[in-house]
Design a protein around this nucleic acid. Sequence first.
DNA 1: TATGAATGAGGTTTCATTCAT
DNA 2: GATGAATGAAACCTCATTCAT
Lengths: 218, 218, 218, 218
Amino acid sequence: MTTETTPRLRADARRNRDRIITAAQAVFTERGTEVPMEEVARTAGVGVGTLYRRFPDRDSLIRAVAHDAFSSVLEDTRATIEQEPDAWRALSQILHRGMALRTVVRLTVLSSRARALINADPNTEAVNNEFMALVDDLVKRAQADGTLRDDISTGDIAVLSSLALQGVQALPEELRTVAPARYIAVLLDGLRADNSRPLPGRPISAQEVVVRTPEVDV
Amino acid sequence: MTTETTPRLRADARRNRDRIITAAQAVFTERGTEVPMEEVARTAGVGVGTLYRRFPDRDSLIRAVAHDAFSSVLEDTRATIEQEPDAWRALSQILHRGMALRTVVRLTVLSSRARALINADPNTEAVNNEFMALVDDLVKRAQADGTLRDDISTGDIAVLSSLALQGVQALPEELRTVAPARYIAVLLDGLRADNSRPLPGRPISAQEVVVRTPEVDV
Amino acid sequence: MTTETTPRLRADARRNRDRIITAAQAVFTERGTEVPMEEVARTAGVGVGTLYRRFPDRDSLIRAVAHDAFSSVLEDTRATIEQEPDAWRALSQILHRGMALRTVVRLTVLSSRARALINADPNTEAVNNEFMALVDDLVKRAQADGTLRDDISTGDIAVLSSLALQGVQALPEELRTVAPARYIAVLLDGLRADNSRPLPGRPISAQEVVVRTPEVDV
Amino acid sequence: MTTETTPRLRADARRNRDRIITAAQAVFTERGTEVPMEEVARTAGVGVGTLYRRFPDRDSLIRAVAHDAFSSVLEDTRATIEQEPDAWRALSQILHRGMALRTVVRLTVLSSRARALINADPNTEAVNNEFMALVDDLVKRAQADGTLRDDISTGDIAVLSSLALQGVQALPEELRTVAPARYIAVLLDGLRADNSRPLPGRPISAQEVVVRTPEVDV
DNA sequence: TATGAATGAGGTTTCATTCAT
DNA sequence: GATGAATGAAACCTCATTCAT
């Protein structure tokens, strides 16, 4: 849990807030952003009343979960870049990294409600922009290195990796955890410069991957 | 619309039934399988009552839409295979083909409710099995030809192409229609035999891509 | 079926009308006056459309069934009185008589909707009044004979026999048909002059057994 | 209201629960078990939501009302037996007693839905069995005393008194409250040993008065 | 402050009645 | 005339949110 929230809270209140976010993250990732609030509360081990005292409505909870996940992804990414000078390898490591990115993906790809909220939330937007900027830089460096294909851009990679990382419930339990790594690997093979046939369409930049219209959840 | 339904329906009833399925397909693909039935009815231009007369509950409507889409995909696939002797090219064409496959994907990847229903419906299962068998055959032929990488199997391809074909609402309108072709192309590059790096995990067969546990919709 | 309905109908129309009344009588007696119209139609072997052409709404069907049953009861009663000079025995025979009386009872005791309609229908009212007058006469003669207790009147007997004749579904199938005769017998023993203790309340006349306020069905 | 429900409920919840049961009892007795839930809620002075929180569906409400009424009848019966050593007089008093027995009757005689639920509910069954056992004992004692006719059994008495106690809406308001006492009196006269004529059929035991087949409400 | 109860709006489904074939 | 399809009002039930304890 990345903790840069509102001012000062009594220790137990603080604890409740964290339990709720953790629970909501799990439940949202597992069952989508439309689960009954009662269920989030139950999972967190608190009453609905407490949930609503902390987060006045569903949207504000989604926002908090999103901000938390995005922040943690950003932190990870910074650390990776610092330690891995090779752009392709850094990119590859970031995509192969885990849980928080998965949550971000769930919220971004699968819930248009979450997307709309994220886009409207300056805090999270800022975090996301910084993350995208870092990836954008890697992308350009990798293309300059001749390791990443040229006819692709950061937005494409964001979307593609989101898709690959998406939980696939159609797979049997035991394969579900390995699958993302496997599909990221196929994707990376498809992204290599030395294996590429020309693509239809045009590169999609980081800025183009957003939502403009409020849509309804899947 | 693939039309092999129950005996004979009065002309007007038949017409309404078709309008409902078409509308439901569009609405489900656009907004998921949980949209208000009222909305499906409105989109089809009929009253709720009519909708319920034809499809006694949501599940039965989902089943009908699924069966219809699966059947149409199967038809397309047969035609393609007949006309294209090269396995890799046939596979590539099938994945680049369209709308019905997109619907199938939406229902299969995004709605666990739909998945559960499809798996429990012998009719649709049969159609799906035949489709999978055809693809499986192409996969093996392409691997024998040395065009498709060896460390992958039909189940993987089903999942990966499902992901690539999934509607991505995070993209701006104008790119949304091209994107799938673009991502299928990247995927195909990642699937080529030449220049591939070993994958983690193990190939996933066609039979493994199903649902076992009833789950909730996203 | 007592047939003194509207003027002239084509033979098949006439036949349909009769089938509907017969079916409705059975279904109303079995399952109450609130059964789906569709079910009445199905039982009669006609479409709902036909049902509605004959009887523009549920009320008009109830009215027709009621009139039919009342008429048939009246006929029976006349016949009995003509053949049995002893008042007590005539009364006893009438109460032990069957089916049509049972229907009347069902409609009268169990469905306040039917009751309201019957009371508002001059035709049926007339038939009912004539029937009640005949019974009233028997009651008075039996009391004059010293066979029927004095502290009771026609209204009481109507209600009591209605109750005893009411179908009792709580009984096992095989007993259901005998039960009414058995309970009418107990009732008659309770009504005998030579076995009576004074009753609370006061005699209820034939005229007092009606409905004034429209009420809802049980 | 007999109050032996689940653990401890918050005071306000407890209060509401009671109001709902009371209201439901009145409304069910007045208008049958199929009244709109909305109406039960309105009568109880709560929202539908509250009603559904307490009783997840109509059946569970019917069960609760039934259990409550049966329990209260049982209590009354025990008290009466304790204070009145003469079997005939005890029986007579029990039948002349009141309201709760009336509710039980309404549920038992008029609603096959209620009957089915009661029969499937071990709790209420137990209460009912104990009540029936007490009555059975009285019946046998009264027959041994020579006060109650011999060709009758507990089941018959249950059915007959149910019928007599049934609300008769066909009576004018002012008579409706006295009527049951009056009809129970006639019934008792019919049940006396002296002066009875042989009955058709055979005695029906307590065990035979149940429901086997699920049936539809009147 | 935390809790869980109460509320009522909104989605689902049934069925009386109307109307096209 | 007969049929069965279409309609929509009304009943059912769930859950987001508010509020008493």
